[in-house]
Design a protein around this nucleic acid. Structure first.
Lengths: 235, 235
DNA sequence: CGTTAAATTGAGGTCGTTCAAACTCAGTGG
DNA sequence: CCACTGAGTTTGAACGACCTCAATTTAACG
């Protein structure tokens, strides 16, 4: 569903997550111009697609609320999850200078997104130094973080790194919370980590046995974050 | 060693690889300004460092000739190779908005680099739309290519994908060449692919046995690129 | 030509996968 | 309110890919 952004009352200056997003630290004039070009909100239910691979890419998106997964289907027909996105994250920036979206994006929670028209945004960057700097900074962070889970390590380490990554990102958004309500299934986690879903299940339960985490339905409580960190680092 | 770039006679307008680099398709005025800020050439022998992790990051670099590896040392003290770079490639862009370099870079061939001062370059991007567009395009390509070898696949597939990647990049630079002179050791390849170096050796020789490649010292001849491609795709 | 690094080859062990089956839980309809 | 359903998860067992360790051969370079 598409809504007029202004009618929703949503504005970067009132957004809880603007500090994570493009709007962070922008001078008032640039913030105003940025909101001018973001005229639309896209709203999706769980299970709905934001966009499909190879679809014409007119927008990038700032996630306002909810959660998405970005994925593609490989040659064997298996899903490969490239990333998960939370409020304040930008979607589709890897397709910014491309005609078509590289991946597909799907809402795994009810999700609202601010649509950023690429043409107008490029012009804004050209004319506003703070927006340019901010955008390049965001791309650079993506360049560094997307590689944060090493190419190859054992499954325990990958899984620990994943939990920490999600936990950190949720902590940044909601303060003082020692548990994660994982929005994605273990199957999706396994497709993200490149592991069998049985392996993910086994490792989560071995973490629980070692009193590192506690699993209650989809809630995961972090009991020993230091141990989790040491597992994520060392082999 | 550092040289004055002008004195070397090097200029984007005469560079064989400018089409791969920032200079691609720039209007003359922007090309001129770009060359104005690139006042220095950095020259290294094999085995010398371009920069070290955590070193103050004043420049990004355009590789003019030679070859580099980008790497870091993990918590176990093992080398993790993030990428290899060829003429026309940009180094250190992931540190563009950071104080310090994220990784270390080392010449694995005698190498010349055009140093691009970050501050001046940012100003250029702000004032010149073509340079901005071009740079964002380059970052986006990096974002997409760095993830081109899937998180997890079997060693055969990774190795095939690696050979194709290197082969394609060398083909782009030197026309009509059905062999690769690999500038990096099998040990470095294994550190890039996240495999044991013995595994890399075994797989290369299994490719040779299957008449996909021919290995002569460090030269690798591609005899059946279609088969190599199909290995890189399917599991 | 000699020294050292790089590559090859083999054997054994381990981690993660695959296949199969059982279980849990939320949602649906009777 | 309860049985049924199906997706998601758990658990077990066996296999196989890749790693590790060790020994040897080959290539690189002063």
């Amino acid at each position: 569903m598409i809504k007029d952004r202004k009618s929703t009352g949503i504005h970067c200056s009132r957004c809880m997550y603007s500090n994570l997003c493009i709007a962070n630290n922008l001078p008032e004039g640039e913030l105003f111009k940025l909101n001018q070009i973001m005229s639309k909100m896209y709203i999706f239910d769980s299970g709905q697609h934001i966009y499909h691979q190879k679809q014409n890419a007119k927008y990038i998106y700032a996630l306002y609320s909810g959660c998405c997964k970005e994925y593609y289907i490989d040659h064997e027909g298996d899903e490969v999850v490239k990333n998960f996105y939370f409020p304040g994250d930008l979607l589709a920036i890897e397709s910014f200078t491309e005609q078509e979206y590289h991946f597909s994006a799907l809402a795994i929670k009810p999700t609202q997104l601010c649509a950023i028209p690429k043409e107008e945004f490029l012009k804004l960057m050209n004319e506003n130094e703070s927006i340019l700097k901010r955008y390049i900074h965001i791309i650079n962070k993506k360049l560094n973080n997307d590689n944060s889970i090493p190419v190859t390590t054992n499954a325990r380490r990958r899984t620990a790194a994943f939990l920490l990554n999600i936990f950190t990102r949720i902590q940044q958004r909601k303060r003082e919370q020692n548990y994660i309500r994982l929005p994605m299934s273990q199957f999706e986690i396994s497709n993200f980590l490149g592991l069998a879903h049985e392996t993910v299940s086994r490792i989560l339960h071995s973490f629980q046995k070692n009193k590192i985490i506690k699993i209650l339905n989809k809630n995961i409580y972090i009991d020993d974050i230091d141990l989790l960190k040491s597992i994520a680092k060392s082999s």
